[in-house]
């Protein structure tokens, strides 16, 4: 995967924060000097319906405005989508997929329509509940996307996200540490899968 010209597709359900995660990823990559694009696909919006969001991260100006059909990375924020959405559609053979589940990559692979590339799993529910006391999958999935895609260094990511959360949660600072813990816990949880 060329870390300097990467296309990411997010699959989630309305209300889970997949769109927010895509916009946050664009935001944090921008701070490293990259050219970024983050956008959702809009349809009849309703809570729980499948939604898609996209990122392009590049070291060159991004001019293409279409959706992404041959992503380098797919992030599945809701495991139940595996039964209704063809999440590996067009995913490059040397690409990767990250799924929010308590299962292992080997247990998940049979559900991926014969995808032969890299499969990673993150138990975002457990990480989020442990760190925040509530289930917000987008912080762990954002960290997982950064860890797997290598779009930026972990330390830069952690530093920029703290600034970002301090701004975003200026009026409820009590959730900043929990969100930061969710990010670092995700990196730790992925260490063995990434062979770090």
């Amino acid at each position: 995967m060329n870390s300097k010209n990467i296309e990411i597709r997010w699959h989630g359900r309305g209300g889970q924060g997949a769109k927010t995660a895509a916009l946050l990823l664009a935001d944090v990559c921008f701070k490293t000097g990259a050219y970024v694009q983050g956008f959702p696909e809009y349809g009849p919006e309703r809570m729980g319906a499948p939604i898609t969001a996209f990122n392009r991260i590049s070291d060159r100006e991004i001019r293409v405005h279409s959706n992404i059909y041959t992503p380098d990375l797919v992030v599945v924020v809701d495991e139940t989508l595996l039964h209704s959405v063809d999440v590996t559609s067009g995913l490059k053979e040397d690409g990767a997929i990250i799924i929010n589940t308590d299962k292992t990559p080997d247990e998940i692979r049979p559900l991926l329509n014969g995808f032969l590339g890299r499969v990673y799993t993150v138990d975002a529910r457990k990480i989020s509940v442990d760190a925040l006391g509530k289930y917000f999958p987008n912080s762990p999935m954002l960290a997982a996307a950064v860890a797997v895609s290598n779009v930026m260094e972990k330390d830069d990511f952690i530093r920029e996200m703290r600034t970002s959360y301090e701004h975003k949660f200026a009026k409820k600072p009590e959730v900043i540490d929990g969100n930061m813990k969710a990010l670092t816990d995700t990196f730790e949880a992925l260490e063995s899968q990434l062979g770090m």
Binding site: D27, V36, Q37, F39, E61, H65
Partner: peptide, 12 residues
């Protein structure tokens, strides 16, 4: 400008 395609896409 193009609805959603540019209006809702974050870019540099």
């Amino acid at each position: 400008q193009d609805g959603f395609i540019t209006s809702h896409a974050v870019q540099n």
